[in-house]
Design a protein around this nucleic acid. Structure first.
Lengths: 337, 337
DNA sequence: TTGAAAGCGCTAACAC
DNA sequence: GTGTTAGCGCTTTCAA
């Protein structure tokens, strides 16, 4: 690979001049510029990003730290981050932590040593303190890490209220909530939203912990329905656990939505693939990722942004698990409310 | 952040000595070593990865180039790559190309300029030539890029034969194949495997192009079954398109598996979430990713590896879409054959 | 056993 | 307008 020196020699100028035309900075005569451009083209020269990094202490890379890309909520988020990053000329380093402090810490080290320009965090295994100490531009995505860290989340609580209300509106009189892991922000908020509604409406309810895991949700639902056969509406904390519940209901011979209605949360593609289609609270996943990336890049490039807390709207998507869908008038069989 | 100079000063030695203890290379007296270690600890010093890169022309990063992480086949693959990379001290740069040559090219540039040590490629939008020119350690994953590029794929052809045979074994007499995009290696091979069986067995069949897209598969299946109501077995080119087919069948009032049996390909988690569970040909996705990463790292570290073509075994997973599953004797309702 | 110094490729004062 | 040169932080000859 040719270096800036080669280009300078080829063009008959100094490296400084080459650098100037490369960065469009400082005075360069038309002729010099032409000579340099020609040399660059002739040698097929590209500036060495590492050398630039060393000088500028920036790398054009951002870290994306999330629990596990295999969890279907994250691919779309990751994709959004990457799209925006690419558009702004950044590159994404991809870090799965499984919510393990150790891995997270290891990655933070590695990322800092590589001069990443900032980090998007969808995990929260550590104390707020640890993130502040990073001393890097940060954005919290789908998690709340602390007061002064820019944050992108969706309306988890309101979504849960919508979900519970939707079940009631459709005639359910005995609800269950398969809640996500305790201590994980969105799961807790969904739980609270659900509680708000059942308490206000004085509806009998049961809460079961199902994590965000399909198999666990299935087993939990089997037990739940066997011991509480009168349950006629299930609000699952995620679309994955909703799928688990549906499996359990199928095994028990319960018809969905006739005997039991099911609603999920997230709006991942899975929901539309299930038969019947899964009614769910849709988060604007792509938008969340894209916004997080934009906020991070603004921070990196020192364009101050006004708001630091961004809560994006959720939307009830009605499909077959809560309502008989008679005809196929919209291609994916879903409706927005 | 402290630099090696700070450490040297603190320890009362030269930077060369610090470097020696850092890299455990060359002679260092016990005392010097002790002083340096103490200084490192005291200053909480970590070597600057960028400066090292500049000197060594390596970065400890590998590029992972794939079409779209939103496609559910890729998250697990990506996860595997990342796990192995992390274990060997590498970091993964994450690149979605949508199979667009332009994006691919842009990423190649960026990756080279950053001194990435190698690339794992799950796309193939360009001529073989382009990949050779990269002049970087390369591994092709789920694609075949050329003779002398180490490759990890699964038994696509054999899997397709298994799938078609399974349908016939279960009494199907009129098959359809929803094939994946033409020109995409695995899709073509699955098509060929299917053809092999239907020709050999002289079974009536129909081929329809459904891409790897659920909605398209659904529409295609609607038309397909309406004009060919005698079809009683569908081999979808992927689990996603199988889900689309199941939707279409539900709309048409066809019972699965009684009226029509369905089998997919890939073995992504979706299959076990559908009701009934989706019979499929399972690829060892995680293993494929992990092997690809190991092969790449071996190449990078100049440990020659013997075989360059690796075809991993597929496995028929029987679930509810081809066989009435009466009881729930295995927790996910699946069986391996 | 250790240190001085050159150099990895690039940028930006500073001088001319 | 342009070139010389001193770094950015690290590694590694080469001398001592």
């Amino acid at each position: 690979m040719p270096t800036i020196k080669d280009v300078a020699k080829q063009a008959g100028v100094s490296v400084a001049t080459v650098s100037r035309v490369l960065n469009k900075k400082g005075y360069v005569s038309k002729e010099a510029e032409k000579a340099v451009s020609a040399a660059i083209k002739k040698l097929d020269y590209r500036p060495n990003a590492v050398a630039r990094s060393l000088y500028h202490k920036t790398s054009g890379m951002i870290g994306l730290v999330l629990p596990d890309i295999s969890n279907p909520f994250f691919p779309e988020l990751a994709r959004a981050v990457e799209d925006v990053a690419l558009a702004y000329g950044y590159t994404v380093v991809f870090c799965n932590t499984d919510e393990e402090v150790e891995k997270e810490q290891k990655y933070f080290e590695a990322l800092k040593q590589k001069y990443v320009d900032g980090i998007i965090l969808s995990t929260s295994s550590q104390e707020q303190e640890a993130y502040h100490q990073l001393d890097l531009p940060l954005v919290a995505l789908d998690r709340i890490l602390g007061e002064n860290i820019p944050t992108v989340v969706s309306e988890n609580r309101k979504g849960a209220e919508l979900a519970a209300t939707h079940l009631l509106d459709n005639g359910c009189r005995h609800l269950a909530h398969l809640r996500g892991p305790e201590g994980v922000g969105p799961a807790d908020e969904r739980y609270e939203g659900f509680m708000e509604v059942v308490r206000r409406e004085k509806i009998p309810y049961i809460i079961k912990n199902a994590g965000f895991d399909m198999e666990k949700a299935k087993q939990t639902t089997l037990k739940l329905i066997r011991s509480n056969p009168s349950i006629d509406g299930i609000f699952a904390g995620s679309d994955i656990t909703a799928a688990g519940a549906m499996h359990a209901l199928a095994i028990l011979g319960k018809k969905v939505p006739d005997d039991v209605k099911v609603i999920g949360f997230d709006g991942i593609p899975l929901g539309s693939m299930l038969v019947p289609g899964l009614t769910t609270i849709e988060q604007p996943i792509y938008k969340m990722g894209a916004l997080a990336a934009r906020l991070l890049i603004k921070q990196i490039e020192k364009n101050p942004h006004d708001k630091i807390y961004h809560e994006l709207p959720v939307k009830l998507i009605v499909r077959g698990t809560t309502e008989e869908v008679k005809n196929d008038w919209k291609s994916d069989g879903s409706r927005e409310h």
